[in-house]
Simulated assay, not measured.
Amino acid sequence: MTSEHPPLRDEIVPSPVVDSEIVFDGVVWDVRREAFDLEGERLVREVIDHPGAVAVLALDEQDRTLLIRQYRHPISSHEWEIPAGLLDVAGEDPLLAAQRELAEEADLVAEHWAVLVDYFSSPGGMNEALRIYLARDLSEVPAAERHEREGEEAHILHRRVPLDEVVDAVLAGDVHNSTLVIGVLAAQRMRDHGWTSLRPADSPWPQHPSNRNHA
Results as ranks from 00 to 15, higher is better:
residue 163 L to E: 04
residue 28 V to P: 14
residue 144 A to H: 11
residue 51 P to N: 00
residue 84 A to L: 10
residue 11 E to V: 05
residue 25 D to G: 11
residue 201 A to K: 12
residue 52 G to I: 05
residue 202 D to L: 10
residue 64 R to G: 05
residue 55 A to S: 12
residue 113 W to Q: 00
residue 33 R to Q: 10
residue 39 E to D: 12
residue 200 P to K: 13
residue 37 D to V: 15
residue 172 A to K: 03
residue 28 V to M: 08
residue 80 W to M: 05
residue 50 H to R: 15
residue 182 I to A: 08
residue 98 A to M: 02
residue 202 D to G: 14
residue 88 D to W: 07
residue 170 V to A: 02
residue 193 H to V: 14
residue 214 H to N: 11
residue 47 V to R: 02
residue 131 R to I: 11
residue 104 E to G: 02
residue 129 A to V: 04
residue 87 L to V: 02
residue 163 L to F: 09
residue 136 R to T: 14
residue 135 A to P: 00
residue 127 N to M: 06
residue 197 S to P: 15
residue 139 S to P: 00
residue 37 D to F: 11
residue 75 I to N: 09
residue 115 V to S: 03
residue 166 V to D: 03
residue 122 S to K: 08
residue 140 E to I: 09
residue 195 W to L: 06
residue 80 W to D: 00
residue 176 H to D: 09
residue 123 P to S: 10
residue 138 L to M: 05
residue 85 G to R: 11
residue 196 T to R: 13
residue 102 L to P: 04
residue 2 T to H: 15
residue 85 G to L: 15
residue 104 E to N: 04
residue 34 E to S: 14
residue 175 V to S: 01
residue 96 L to W: 12
residue 204 P to V: 12
residue 11 E to Q: 12
residue 172 A to I: 04
residue 15 S to W: 06
residue 191 R to M: 14
residue 24 F to R: 06
residue 65 T to W: 08
residue 183 G to Q: 00
residue 135 A to T: 02
residue 113 W to P: 03
residue 146 R to Y: 01
residue 101 E to L: 03
residue 108 L to H: 01
residue 118 D to H: 14
residue 188 Q to S: 11
residue 124 G to P: 00
residue 73 H to P: 14
residue 65 T to L: 12
residue 15 S to I: 03
residue 204 P to T: 15
residue 72 R to F: 15
residue 197 S to I: 13
residue 211 N to E: 09
residue 191 R to A: 14
residue 147 H to N: 01
residue 177 N to C: 04
residue 184 V to G: 08
residue 141 V to S: 04
residue 72 R to M: 15
residue 180 L to Y: 04
residue 187 A to N: 07
residue 91 G to K: 02
residue 93 D to P: 05
residue 8 L to P: 04
residue 111 E to G: 03
residue 134 L to V: 00
residue 110 A to N: 01
residue 136 R to N: 06
residue 165 E to T: 01
residue 195 W to N: 10
residue 20 S to V: 04
residue 52 G to M: 07
residue 142 P to M: 12
residue 65 T to R: 07
residue 182 I to T: 03
residue 40 G to D: 02
residue 5 H to G: 14
residue 65 T to G: 14
residue 134 L to C: 10
residue 205 W to C: 11
residue 213 N to H: 15
residue 136 R to W: 10
residue 53 A to W: 08
residue 14 P to A: 01
residue 180 L to F: 08
residue 179 T to G: 06
residue 141 V to W: 09
residue 136 R to D: 05
residue 156 I to G: 06
residue 172 A to M: 03
residue 158 H to L: 05
residue 116 L to C: 03
residue 156 I to N: 00
residue 117 V to M: 07
residue 51 P to L: 08
residue 69 R to G: 10
residue 88 D to G: 08
residue 102 L to S: 03
